[in-house]
Amino acid sequence: MTDRPIADGTLRRRASSRRGLAPDFRAIVDSLQHTVVVTDAVLDPPGPTILYVNPAFTRMTGYTPDEVIGRSPRLLQGPGTDQITIRSIGAALRRGEGGIWKLMNQGRDGAPYWVELRIAPLRGAEGRVDQFVAFQRPSHPDMEWADVAGADTGRDALTGLPDRRTLLAEVQRHLQGRGAGQLCFAYLSIDHFAALTAAETSMGDAVLLGFADILSANLRRSDGLGRLGGEEFGISMPGIRPAEAQALAERLRRSIEAQPIATPAGPLATVCSIGLSMGRPGETLAELVERADSALEAARRAGGNRVVSG
């Protein structure tokens, strides 16, 4: 979801009517190398409203203060912004809490960038939250989402989703639990990915990010999504029956088919193939994944853009 542009200055007037920053606080944050954004606490759309950004914000995003004051931080969201993380942030703010998140945003020029986002509530004299302050620092993909170079955090560098090892470890835990008979593993692949993205690397990255975003928005809260490698993704679906798993997979397939993905060359229509395998008592992880992989290959051989159970 993106921010709505200012049409008549209403949001700017609302922002200017709010309590301003204390001079000593502003002097400090103006000199910081990391981005600082202060918003009001009105969380219902089109809010919250940006009240202040420091010079580092302009260096990171390309937006000047005049372009963003009075608008919502949603203007930084792009096709690769993880909506599950956005909903997690919104839920925390509505509870009056802060937190730390990893997020992909989009600069003024449309280029995506990763940040570590730390948000804290600012309380007024009566203890009520009336502003939020967000501190952002770059979190480059080649750092593998780590605070210490070389640390392995189990995240895919591009999408920020769990990587193959992390996702399959989650599937293994479900297999070892009591609900193995109601566990489904879905193996997904973007059809014709090489042909779609042959023009340039950024096309491929945009498609992968958009694909992950659509999947994330259409899963159940209990499902686990990860990138297995290349254009292949996996989903752990615990506590689900075969008919329900088939229906969910079909909904995912239709959602991908119906939503063109934003790319540097414009919206791009994509389709995907999905292979499903339901867990069986005593089955190993390798056997479960192999059956899903075989079902995926059957879907591809049948022309793609379909769901096959194995």
Rank of each mutant, 00 (worst) to 15 (best):
I100G: 10
T284A: 04
A120E: 13
G96C: 10
A198I: 09
R227M: 04
E244Q: 13
R301F: 02
D191S: 05
P45C: 06
H34L: 12
T39E: 05
A206E: 03
G154M: 14
A180I: 13
N54R: 00
A212K: 04
A27W: 08
A243S: 14
G154Y: 14
E250P: 09
T263N: 13
C184E: 05
G20T: 03
D163M: 12
I69S: 08
L167F: 07
L161F: 15
P141Y: 13
E283Y: 01
D82G: 04
G226S: 08
D156G: 10
D293H: 05
Y63S: 08
L252I: 09
E232S: 12
A199T: 11
E232N: 11
S236Y: 03
V289Y: 00
G80H: 04
G230T: 11
R227W: 07
G90N: 14
P281L: 06
M278E: 03
G282F: 04
P267G: 11
T64C: 09
R94T: 06
K102A: 10
R59N: 01
V271L: 03
R87H: 06
F132K: 00
T39P: 04
D293F: 02
E250D: 12
G154W: 15
M203H: 12
D142N: 15
D205Y: 01
D223S: 02
G177P: 04
R178I: 10
L248W: 05
M237T: 11
G226Y: 05
A199M: 05
N105L: 09
L75E: 10
E297M: 08
A91Y: 04
A134H: 11
A292D: 00
R128C: 03
A245M: 13
G90W: 10
L285M: 02
R241V: 06
I190L: 13
V148I: 14
D156V: 12
F135L: 15
A186M: 07
E297D: 02
T61H: 08
R4P: 00
R12N: 00
T2P: 01
I89E: 09
S202A: 08
M104G: 09
R254Q: 15
L228N: 00
R108N: 11
R123M: 15
Y52E: 14
Q106G: 07
L188C: 10
I100D: 10
G204Y: 05
V53L: 02
A262Q: 13
N218I: 00
L11S: 03
E250R: 08
A245G: 15
E144L: 14
D156L: 08
G224F: 08
R12H: 00
R74M: 06
A27Q: 06
R108M: 14
A41N: 04
Q172A: 15
